[in-house]
Design a protein around this nucleic acid. Structure first.
Length: 821
DNA sequence: TATGTACGCGCC
DNA sequence: AAAGGGCGCGTACATA
């Protein structure tokens, strides 16, 4: 079952006409091409299955009924197992299979709402299909090259268990599409999958990172079988979709797919369902063949190594590490801690909301009592209505009526508003009038923007002593009126951040914590750079310490008797930039140690350098020796250091002088001068960036530190805007992707460490340059040393030692994530 | 009613 | 014309 990914949101229509057609010549072997005609199971009737261009509902219906259709031919070629005796015969064959064979496997699962929860601890396997290639005989009389279909539902319940010894045998290599999902649901059945031979989703990512772009279909089995094999796997909706009946009894345009167990039981669907399930396994197997061939054609770190080596040696194991972590989950104190924090947060919100609305009512009348602070449209109308839309050049509306559900309007507002509108409708008309301020920032669509920093600029901080008023103070004539405006807008600002905290963290973590108080996110290898992402929930965006007003990280706790180890790389990306570019100045600064940004500031500004040389300021200080005798650079020249720090990061990301000038509120010329200053001492970085961009423009490619590829078709033109973005990506990906390479190798090493196993320590989470482990408190110190070793020396084939050492910082003695950082 | 898009914001 | 890379996800609003 491969349903955990949905089609991503950013399929750009505008990109289509700019698809590159000529790169095949340049990049023989790197680019996917459909196989002519395809190499399918003999005897299968494929003409309709491949011809997805001419598909029509009528045609599909015909295919469903046609006994000679592909799906039905798959059934005839399926080895169906429903009894123990059948299972025994097939197992005999499987356990004697040539260990060189790959077996593609796929499950179907019921009782799981993937929109809400993940597969860890959820879902029941109704069947398993296995395809072992065109020459394998499962021994039950079906033609050679049939597909094995193991029923596990109703009276066949438990038959899956007969295959446990084979599933758990390391010798027999199983391949999957989206292994993590199947591994978890098999685990739910008490089966611990071993002998992992590859995940076609990961392999496809490795082969081409850009399948989401320019009309590509992404990484679903449907899209990949279509694009790489020219044989499209039809999605369930297409085959089993049933028009939803409208209230009047006629079929509507919405299409539902019956639940899995219905498809498998109901005679109307069963045949096609078995065929569908078999097709997933066959498609995965064929896709795997194709991807192996493609990856083998892509050079890795030398003429005689290729990306399949990379996959086999590193990524394949990493997929197991990730699913280990997902299975384990991270313990969250949801019932007591998060629940009480949520109560407090809602209380705070209520107070802020009251303050803001009462002020708004003073300004625009009773409608102000009903303004929704979470609606950007309402806020933009209220604050900036009448200002010009930068894109359309039209003035934005300065009065707008919003239909607001009655229950969302507070009682006092309803009373006040009723005098105006006497209707008894479910919705209340809320008329938002503009107070007419000038817009500060605009959204991509040209409308006035009401982001948190815009609101902050309006409000300032009226509670500081003395108050630091924002723009609203003068707009409302200063004095008490100006003060009140700032206070109200300050509250508005607070509401926004509280809403984020409640929605993203407080409620979602409580909802997702299982019976054991553990949260099991899904860790995906689905990024353009090779970084991980975390979903359901996203554990990689928990509030940072400084901003963690509600101390959400405190909820992430070790189990009783355990500690957490939290270890993170210091300046990993900048170290990799220094190493990749062989930049002497950066390497020297890292070798000298201490505060890197201070050293950059010293490099860039003569007066800072002078002060250091004269001994007036210190570059850094070890506070264990008491207070410093002289001021520190980071205090005395705080603004210079801040500029240097910003530049260090911005340059790695390809930020332009224009962007910097916006951030700093200086002219582009001044920003350009600062950039020049930075580059002056680091010419190697400038050269490397120029070369990397030129390579991207020529080949539509960039590569990470460890030799992975990222396709950047936009870099080859013709859209200037897209070229610019692709160029920036081309210099960022080697670094960001390189850091991801390092993190992956370190985690592989940690997961393989016999010492950590012996001491009882296991990986729980990764946040890009940080890992979290849990284990017994008695062995924490020893385990910590081992973790540091693994992270500081992740070297493996393809990643030689960097020109600057990798530095890891962390802690071992704490019980929760908040303390541990 | 369900689904898609825009926007905004949390993290590294 | 846009102007820092990479994510996931919630809300409001528009659309079918």
């Amino acid at each position: 079952m491969d349903t955990t990914y949905e089609k991503d949101k950013f399929l750009e229509e505008e990109g289509k006409e700019e698809t590159i057609n000529n790169k095949d010549d340049l990049l023989e072997g790197l680019i996917s091409k459909p196989v002519e005609g395809g190499n399918w199971v003999p005897g299968a009737s494929l003409d309709w299955a491949t011809d997805f261009g001419r598909r029509s509902p009528e045609y599909d219906k015909l295919c469903r009924e046609d006994e000679t259709s592909f799906y039905h031919s798959q059934i005839q070629n399926a080895t169906i197992v429903r009894t123990k005796e059948q299972a025994r015969i097939v197992m005999e064959k499987l356990m004697n299979a040539n260990p060189g064979l790959f077996h593609a496997c796929d499950t179907e699962v019921m009782d799981i709402k993937l929109k809400e929860v993940g597969p860890v601890g959820n879902g029941y396997v109704t069947c398993l299909s296995v395809y072992s290639g065109p020459n394998f005989d499962y021994g039950l009389g079906a033609p050679i090259g049939s597909t094995l279909w193991i029923d596990n539902l109703d009276d066949a319940h438990g038959i899956l268990q007969e295959f446990k010894p084979w599933m758990e045998d390391e010798r027999f290599k199983k391949i999957w599409h989206n292994y993590g999902f199947d591994r978890h649901v098999m685990w739910n059945e008490g089966i611990d999958c071993r002998g992992f031979g590859g995940d076609t989703m990961h392999m496809a990512r490795l082969q081409d990172t850009s399948r989401m772009k320019n009309g590509g279909g992404g990484y679903s089995l449907e899209a990949l079988t279509s694009e790489l094999l020219n044989m499209r796997k039809r999605p369930m909706k297409e085959i089993f979709g049933v028009a939803r009946i409208k209230k009047d009894g006629s079929p509507g345009s919405l299409v539902d797919v019956p639940p899995i167990e219905v498809l498998q039981r109901d005679p109307e669907f069963r045949k096609n369902f078995i065929a569908y399930s078999c097709y997933d396994a066959v498609g995965t197997w064929e896709l795997h063949q194709r991807l192996v061939a493609l990856l083998k054609k892509m050079e890795w770190i030398s003429k005689d190594t290729n990306l399949f080596d990379y996959y086999w040696e590193n990524m394949r194991y990493f997929a197991e590490v990730l699913t280990d972590m997902e299975r384990r989950g991270i313990r969250v104190d949801a019932k007591d801690y998060l629940a009480s924090v949520e109560v407090q947060a809602r209380k705070d919100r209520k107070e802020h909301l009251k303050k803001f609305r009462q002020w708004a009512a003073v300004i625009i009348g009773p409608d102000g009592l009903a303004i929704n602070p979470a609606s950007a449209t309402q806020l933009a109308t209220f604050l900036f209505g009448g200002s010009t839309n930068l894109k359309t050049k039209e003035p934005t509306e300065d009065v707008r009526v919003f239909k607001v559900a009655r229950e969302e309007v507070p009682e006092d507002a309803i009373k006040a508003l009723k005098e105006k509108s006497m209707e008894k409708s479910k919705f209340i008309d809320v008329t938002v009038r503009s107070i007419g301020m000038d817009a500060i920032k605009h959204t991509a669509g040209g409308a006035p923007s009401v982001t948190a920093d815009v609101l902050r600029e309006l409000a300032g901080d009226p509670f500081e002593d003395p108050p630091k008023y924002g723009l609203a103070y003068n707009y409302f004539g200063g004095n008490e009126r100006g003060h009140e405006a700032c206070v109200a807008l300050f509250s508005l600002c607070a509401i926004g951040s509280i809403d984020t905290m409640i929605a993203n963290f407080l409620t979602s973590l409580q909802f997702l914590a299982d019976h054991d108080s553990r949260v099991h996110c899904s860790l995906n290898l689905n990024t353009e750079t090779g970084r991980l992402s975390s979903r359901r929930p996203n554990l990689q965006n928990q509030p940072a310490l400084e901003k963690d007003k509600y101390k959400i990280r405190q909820a992430f706790q070790a189990s009783p008797g355990n500690n957490l180890i939290v270890a993170d790389y210091g300046q990993l990306e900048l170290r990799l930039l220094a190493s990749m570019t062989r930049c002497k100045s950066m390497i020297d600064a890292f070798d000298a140690g201490g505060d890197f940004h201070s050293r950059t500031a010293m490099d860039m500004f003569d007066h800072v350098k002078q002060a250091v040389d004269d001994g007036d300021v210190l570059l850094e200080w070890d506070y264990s020796n008491g207070d410093p005798p002289k001021p520190l650079l980071k205090d005395k020249f705080a603004s210079e250091r801040r500029k240097a720090k910003t530049l260090n990061f911005s340059i790695a990301y390809g930020k332009t002088a224009h962007g910097l000038s916006q951030d700093w509120g200086v002219s582009p010329t001044e920003a350009q001068e600062m950039l020049e200053k930075w580059y002056e001492a680091r010419p190697e970085v400038r050269d490397w960036q120029a070369n990397t961009k030129a390579y991207a423009r020529k080949f539509g490619l960039t590569r990470t530190l460890m030799g992975r590829y990222r396709q950047l078709p936009d870099a080859m033109g013709p859209n200037q805007r897209f070229i610019g973005a692709a160029e920036r990506a081309s210099i960022n990906t080697p670094i960001q992707g390189g850091a991801a390479d390092v993190a992956m190798l370190a985690m592989n090493k940690i997961n393989r460490s016999e010492k950590l196993k012996r001491l009882g320590w296991i990986l729980m989470l990764q946040i890009h340059d940080e890992v979290i482990l849990e284990g017994p408190e008695e062995t924490a110190i020893e385990a910590f040393d081992e973790v540091i070793d693994c992270m500081e020396s992740p070297w493996a084939k393809g990643l030689s030692k960097t020109a600057v050492p990798l530095l890891v910082d962390g802690s071992w003695q704490h019980k929760n994530w908040y303390e541990a950082k």
